[in-house]
Nucleic acid binder design. Structure first.
Length: 140
DNA sequence: GCCAACGTTGGC
DNA sequence: GCCAACGTTGGC
């Protein structure tokens, strides 16, 4: 069963277009420094899982496209004590228009999304299959 | 183990 | 740039 996730990135730092320009449209998702998210990267996120790319700190913020996990959690290179993990993601598609945070908040099916809740700061969150269907429908 | 101070995230 | 929310740190 395919699982869905939402990964946040500031487009000024790394955008969906940056991912599309990578060799093989693939990049390691690194730099996570939160233990809860680390554990998801290490234990839960699997090859074949689909990932919504969310632009945070953007104007407006929102979901801009879809990625796929092509390599499951492995330690970031050159780490010593606290070992941080990364996965590799591959660009799948960019939505013809972004689904803004505002639209997410206004869709009754997406009220449950963590990203719609104030104060949520996790850079990676699970997305239910119902939520993912609703998002994909909005993007069509 | 409590909790105040501090740092970071991210919407606005 | 502001600031609310919340995770982390470190003194006790």
């Amino acid at each position: 069963m395919t699982r869905y996730w939402l990964f946040k990135s500031e487009p000024k730092v790394f955008s969906i277009d940056d991912l599309a320009r990578r060799p093989h449209k693939t990049a390691p998702w690194d730099g996570v420094r939160n233990y809860q998210v680390r554990n998801m990267l290490r234990d839960e996120i699997k090859v074949g899982d689909l990932v919504f790319f969310y632009h945070s700190n953007a104007n407006p913020p929102g979901i801009v496209g879809l990625m796929k996990v092509v390599k499951a959690g492995y330690p970031e290179p050159n780490q010593d004590r606290p070992v941080w993990f990364q996965v590799d993601v591959e660009w799948q598609k960019k939505f013809s228009s972004m689904i803004t945070l505002d639209e997410i908040k206004q869709n009754p099916l997406l009220q449950t999304m963590l990203v719609a809740k104030r104060g949520n700061r996790l850079s990676i969150t699970p997305v239910s299959s119902e939520e993912s269907k609703a998002i994909l429908k909005m993007s069509a």
